[in-house]
Nucleic acid binder design. Structure first.
Lengths: 131, 131
DNA sequence: AATATTATGTTAGAAAATATAACATATCAC
DNA sequence: GTGATATGTTATATTTTCTAACATAATATT
């Protein structure tokens, strides 16, 4: 679980993601525009990417290479989401239990930092502030 | 091995490190000035920190809390570094190679499912305890 | 073939983040 | 009380990132 949390943590600026994926900023933003990724934002509106985002971008690149377009990639991703949920259902921790854990963690984090992210997913629980 | 690469990979901007460590930019730069950390630099001279850097900073904080000064902390770090082989230090590797390594590591990590960050390190902020 | 769509490049201007450097200061050790 | 240490604060320059608009080659559609 901690691993997944870490991987969902928005840490990287777009410049790093560009280097890791060899994609241009234009491409990355375009894929976001098409909902293939949803990077978090800092208070100053900078995109902050997680390792999951990087992973997704690398896969987008592969799929594009295979001639698949935005819609197709979206479909592939959506299908995977379904699979993830299925797999997740089989884990020991219940959804409710998970929520409690996440809430606890979030509250603890807020004791240390000011809240700031406005977006869904796990990254909701990770704080990014700018000033 | 790849995991160490990843932890030594300079990815994070100072703003992220500030949040992860609860240190001010001033403090972080001061510690660098005193050679306690040596973050990489971007083309445009921005500091880029690795997870190892974050861990080091968290430890600096602890040691300062214990009343140890810069010189003392430096000594502690130097003593440890004797056996500590830093793969990334002087190795010249391309972005592509780094990316491939990162990718490999991520994929493998998903299979091995191994908790790893040591206590008192980064895990304090991103790990949630199951059960 | 002509036209439209898609994925990406390029450019411009604004805003945010970071850099260095200088000066300020509270806390200790002496 | 003096001086060193660790950190705060401020100023200014540079870099990074943002959005938005317009351009275009490659595909798809008609």
């Amino acid at each position: 679980m901690s691993r997944e949390f870490r991987r969902a943590m928005p840490l990287l600026p777009i410049s790093m993601v560009m280097q890791l994926t060899e994609l241009t900023a234009r491409q990355i933003r375009y894929y976001e525009e098409h909902k293939l990724i949803q990077p978090a934002r800092s208070e100053g509106n900078r995109r902050m990417f997680s390792l999951d985002d990087v992973d997704a971008l690398l896969e987008i690149r592969e799929l594009l290479d295979q001639g698949i377009n935005m819609a197709g990639i979206k479909k592939v991703f959506d299908m995977r989401q379904v699979n993830d949920v299925r797999i997740y259902d089989k884990t020991i921790i219940s959804d409710a239990e998970l929520r409690i854990i996440l809430r606890e963690e979030m509250l603890q984090a807020q004791r240390l930092q000011k809240p700031s992210l406005r977006q869904g997913g796990l990254s909701r629980f990770i704080q990014i502030k700018s000033k």
